[in-house]
Amino acid sequence: MPCATRKTTKTGARFRALTALTALAAACLTLTGCARDGTAPSAARAHPAAGAPAAFGTVDCRRAKCVALTFDAGPSENSARLLDILKEEQVPATFFLLGARHIEKYPELVVRMAAEGHEVANHTWDHQILTRIPAERVREEIQRPNEEIERLTGQKPTLMRPPQGRTDDTVHRICKELGMSEVLWSVTAKDYTTTDSELITRRVLDQTSRDGIILLHDIYAGTVPAVPGIIDALKERGYVFVTVPQLLAPGRAEPGKVYRP
């Protein structure tokens, strides 16, 4: 996708605050206020949901070596190119979308994500740290993207990722009330710290194992160019790419629970 210098400069300014917020994401899971525990995909698969099929779609992750590719904080001006790559590679992904300045700005990309078989999920409205705001604002941060995504796609999201992975009992309770499950990650490329696509690729490949949930951000310049190499290398290693719901099947994500490898 063409990208003018002026537009790139504006994009960098627009996401500067978001970069600051995500800078601690890799260390988050060891800090107070972040989720330390959660249900592993294998544990979810061990408890099939009532009426669920033996496998989700054409992939059974009880047998296949599955991995889930996830992207936070879009859509962005880079998302169309990313969707082109995923379509060419026949790889599904899970998109945790932001509302303000993202869903608002690129509604056609939200529609395209859903239409092309990706899982469209929630990353809050304005990237507020949910453990630092009152319960009523937590509810608004989660509910507003749900309403917009449902309006655009006809499907209400069931998955959300709390910014920086920071969550607590209040967030769990509100998610349960809203029918949402929280999804964290096991692989981070720290793509908010570098524009080096080769480095992003190496970081992902070094950390990925079976049932991995890979965290990337298509808002950053180095990320989308790294995606083809990540996909090709992991396919060579025998991995099958699935969405997060496919990773959990024949189990289903339960509202109020946290899922992480």
Rank of each mutant, 00 (worst) to 15 (best):
P41E: 05
K7C: 13
P163S: 13
G238E: 06
A20D: 11
A121C: 10
G57V: 10
P255C: 10
L18S: 10
C28F: 03
E140K: 15
A93P: 06
H172V: 06
K65W: 09
Y220N: 06
A54I: 03
E88S: 10
L69R: 03
A189P: 01
M160Y: 12
T158S: 13
H123C: 08
C3T: 09
H118D: 13
I219N: 02
R237N: 08
M113W: 05
A40S: 13
C175D: 14
T131V: 15
T39F: 02
H123T: 09
G165A: 12
T30H: 14
Q90C: 03
N122Y: 04
G57F: 05
M113I: 08
T8N: 05
I142V: 14
G256W: 13
Q128M: 09
A4W: 06
T30P: 00
I213R: 01
G179M: 08
C66P: 03
T158K: 10
L29Y: 07
L178A: 11
A50Q: 11
S79D: 12
R81M: 09
E147I: 12
V258C: 08
A226R: 02
Q90W: 00
G99L: 02
T32Q: 12
V110G: 02
V187G: 02
D84A: 14
L98F: 07
H217L: 04
L24S: 14
R16A: 13
P157R: 03
